[in-house]
Amino acid sequence: MPALTRRHLLSATALVAFSSSALGRSLTGSLPWQPNEAYPPQLVRPGGWYFLTADEAAMVDAIVTRFIPADDLSPSGKDAGCTVFIDRQLAGPYGTYEWLYMKGPFSANPLPTQGIQSPLVPQQQYRQGLAALAAHCRDQFGGKRFEQLTGDEQDGVLRAMEKNELQLGQLKRPLLDAKMFFDLLLQNTMEGFFADPVYGGNRDMVGWKMVGFPGTRYDFRDVLANPGQVYNKPPVSIIGRPAWNGRPA
């Protein structure tokens, strides 16, 4: 890394974290310029878990597979890398809401229009939510873990969470309840399935291929020259295309 970089990598994160602790600068006389200055994200590679425990990861694997089941439209959420994505996101600044306003006091009765008002950051929401979900399954399904349930049973639990018809242990609003946790899981799964593959999900751009999103080609003047035509070019991500690395697109 260049010595003069004004921001630094946080080693534990999957994202490049822009640090506001870099010193302020005085600039005059010309545009500041440093050769090769850019702030790319760090490429996520699968293997090991940075935040989730192995048991938690197995539950998340099962959940993302119910959210995005394998069929002829795409591989499953798990095979698309959604769990890897979620794990790496939780290990980075998102996991601690590092960029959000998290000072108290936290109201016990926020208005529905006031957005996030829980002091629990995503790391805590996953840890507590998954633990409560595991306990719920143990109690209701004869000691089984969520990932040991049938697909229909898993869907039933997820649907109950979505409708907030399921009490997850002691969890309740505004800290966290079943629906809030469900919404977080679903949002993060969709992020993983559709974000650039650099972050560990959307493996081989399977999410983009499913919806016909051509990715980061950045120049679509050819499309505007002839509107309304079917677009067939394969997608490109900010880490390129499999074909460019000697693999089939």
């Binding site: 994202l15 994200p41 974000a195």
Partner: peptide, 10 residues
């Protein structure tokens, strides 16, 4: 940068 700008998640 064109290599990093088109990044919806970020």
């Amino acid at each position: 940068n064109i290599g990093t700008a088109p990044d919806e998640l970020r």
